[in-house]
Design a binder for these strands. Structure first.
Lengths: 221, 221
DNA sequence: ATGTCAAATAATATCGATATTTTGAGGAGA
DNA sequence: TCTCCTCAAAATATCGATATTATTTGACAT
């Protein structure tokens, strides 16, 4: 009998809502690396109870976006060049494995999915849409998810998120899009559709390493 | 002024205590795969409040030992041959990377650590000590931790735990120790001390694959 | 006899409050 | 003047209770 105030009604549970919002704030840098995350402060910011905030922070700990310190609460995960380079290294390693397995399982349903994801990403990119990030991730995950290796996919997804956090922190998404990544994505897509594992892997890793060099160069802080 | 009842006093926080105990119960199979984990039931079992139990389950979700279902609570992660094989695959991939990086950074301090861990493991194994598992994991992690890649190490540790869960579920620890793993460990250690990356990797992966075949054969259920 | 709907039951998710721990400041002693 | 101890203030961790949500039971209609 609480008057059904949730007219927006998007979130199923307060915990999940807090999780998504905090996650977005950390990924975009709105909550800067290393910042102390006080329950009370966040409780006010998200206007919800302390329990959902606390549980959301716990969940973010698994994603390595939040660190828990002894009995002293939580803080946003710190960043470092070392950490960034490790993320890049692991992504190259794991995504190569996943991509090869995906291509090994290739079928026409997967090809259809790839083409669609790529199309949606291009469309979102042209409109400068807010959901380009989501479409971009969906395309990259679609490249990998035909491997049918859920643990591996989970790790790739985690590392992907950690990486775009660095992209946001370095310069925001705009400068990233200045480079012609359309051509790079097209190359990856074409190779995957040709079931050319070696070529797809090369294009994909080049794609990541190029972004990596760009970000690394901006990170002399 | 609560009379200082915690004479055992090992646990720093109720949450962490609940986490460790639940983790152990899931790894050993005391809480079988797929079982519904009701808060009330666990609250009684660990005699603590509902909040620590809830938070511990959240943390275990990150370790992929517990699954969260919609708004219907938690359950112990299910097992399958597929899942086991994926764990084995990822371990081989990730541990090879970590081991090579560890050896590339080799120094005498690391060698000392390795020798000590190996000695402790052997000692615990001879006595049939309860803490053989801990020593075994410590040795394997010591092989990898000189890579100084914390994310990678974390993944390896997670996968290690998921793997010993299958070992417990298949037969308990006893039958595993029947095989002569001492020789295998010695080969790995010697190759690592020789800074022979290729040999160490071969012995390590053989070690895992042999265990994997043994467990796979027992898993026609 | 069976399928469907509704009420009862059980479990979860959330809230408000308390107790414990940590942090910081200020004062006493060296 | 510096160090260490004590006390106050703030934040966290935990508990008990409530409201919300799912599940089951049972009755009724088909």
């Amino acid at each position: 009998m609480d008057a059904m105030l949730d007219t927006e009604g998007k979130e199923t549970s307060a915990t999940h809502g807090a999780y998504r919002r905090l996650r977005a704030m950390i990924l975009t840098g709105e909550l800067p690396p290393g910042q102390k995350l006080k329950i009370e402060q966040l409780r006010g910011l998200l206007d919800t109870g302390a329990s959902p905030v606390r549980e959301a922070l716990s969940l973010l700990t698994s994603d390595m976006l939040v660190e828990r310190i002894d009995q002293r609460g939580f803080r946003a995960a710190p960043v470092s060049k070392c950490n960034f380079e490790e993320i890049l290294l692991l992504r190259c390693n794991l995504e190569e494995t996943a991509l090869r397995a995906s291509i090994a399982n290739a079928d026409s349903a997967w090809e259809d999915r790839l083409v669609l994801r790529h199309y949606h990403m291009k469309k979102a990119g042209q409109k400068g849409a807010h959901d380009f990030e989501d479409a971009h991730k969906a395309f990259h995950m679609a490249l990998l998810d035909n491997a049918r290796l859920p643990l591996l996919l989970r790790y790739c997804s985690q590392l992907y998120d950690l990486n775009i956090r660095y992209r946001y922190l370095a310069a925001g998404v705009s400068s990233y899009k200045k480079r012609d990544i359309n051509a790079e994505h097209q190359e990856i897509l074409d190779a995957a559709l040709d079931r050319d594992a070696e070529g797809a892997k090369r294009h994909l890793l080049d794609h990541y390493r190029r972004t990596g060099e760009y970000l690394s160069s901006q990170m002399e802080s």
